[in-house]
Design a protein around this nucleic acid. Sequence first.
DNA 1: TAGTGTGAAATCTTTCACAGCA
DNA 2: TGCTGTGAAAGATTTCACACTA
Lengths: 209, 209
Amino acid sequence: MKSVTIPPASVARLPLYLYALETLQSEGMGTISSEILANRVNVNAAKVRKDLSFLGTHGVRGVGYDSAVLGQEIREALGLTRDFGVVIVGIGNLGAALASYDSFGAARFHIVGLYDTNPEKIGTRIGDLEVRHLRHLAADVAEHDVEIGIITTPTAVAQEVAQQLEDCGIRSILNFAQTVLHTENAAVRRVDLSTELQILGYYLRSDRG
Amino acid sequence: MKSVTIPPASVARLPLYLYALETLQSEGMGTISSEILANRVNVNAAKVRKDLSFLGTHGVRGVGYDSAVLGQEIREALGLTRDFGVVIVGIGNLGAALASYDSFGAARFHIVGLYDTNPEKIGTRIGDLEVRHLRHLAADVAEHDVEIGIITTPTAVAQEVAQQLEDCGIRSILNFAQTVLHTENAAVRRVDLSTELQILGYYLRSDRG
DNA sequence: TAGTGTGAAATCTTTCACAGCA
DNA sequence: TGCTGTGAAAGATTTCACACTA
């Protein structure tokens, strides 16, 4: 791997820059400054330059960045130069919604499997995928090259599912269940609606004149 | 407002502690140590104690914390001692999934309105709410006491919807669209699937032996 | 001249380590 | 004795400010 380690806080912003660059490019902005990019992403221009400096230096002093080149640099830094197989476990309302959400950033992420344990769900179709019983997970993951698992199960079984994903060799998990997962090696990112609402609730607190 | 300002990083963890405490309580753990709580939330025990110290001191040296009392303290710090009205704008797959997701942390958050502009959606029901045209937003927000808006629209209209939410006096927005919103005063939290996947993708990069 | 790249300062966050108390 | 509460140290992140250069 050529690239140096990028600080986590910067990594988390790279997708935002990438999206903004794609938008700017589609608006015909071939060259952009850190200032413009910063405005789009709601951050400070110095932060943009610092973040981009971790990818190497690709700007031109007095001019700015070539949006196409910079976009490509970010894609490379993020490893978005290849495809990723994704499975979703737990095909309730949320899982089904994510399954049909096809415009996953630059189409590098492909949902290749949907799993549930509810007999009523098994065999139903979403797009061109059929919901399969969770017992098929291990074999399917081995056959297709799956690297990311999304957990949209009820909270009670999320930990157990995480374990199964890890046992299949999956190293990255996106957890929509309310619980905090414990994993051996897998990287986990947690997305939870009620947590987000509670955080917003805190900031509403003092806000009230 | 009695409470001191809590650092953002701590605020973001309080909902996790709260959820863990509720679980521990339901397991019959009336008293818990920072160590136990830390394990549940996957953080360091000193961090738990530091975070809790911002709420005032409620532990007993040599013993630990009373999980019921501590839970209540966290609820108060987060402002979860009253109800919050929530509206969802954009009733596609994701919006509909969130609308039917009723167990919003401790039931303090109540969805009171669903909006869309697609004539085919207007008038359909989810649970006991009917999807209404977005043009009713302002009047509805004024009538019910709505404080939080969730945006699950297509990216292209998210900014415009954010503006409308702000114009109605909403000060907190949860944004599921891919774009970064620009607001005058409203606090925004952004949740985006493709961003999360891209971040996970980065950590898969170097990981590969 | 306009805008990058980056040391250095400022700020925020985490972790350590231990005094103090039930 | 066991665990909290917290100063102080370490580490990470953000921001400033300016040398540099196309």
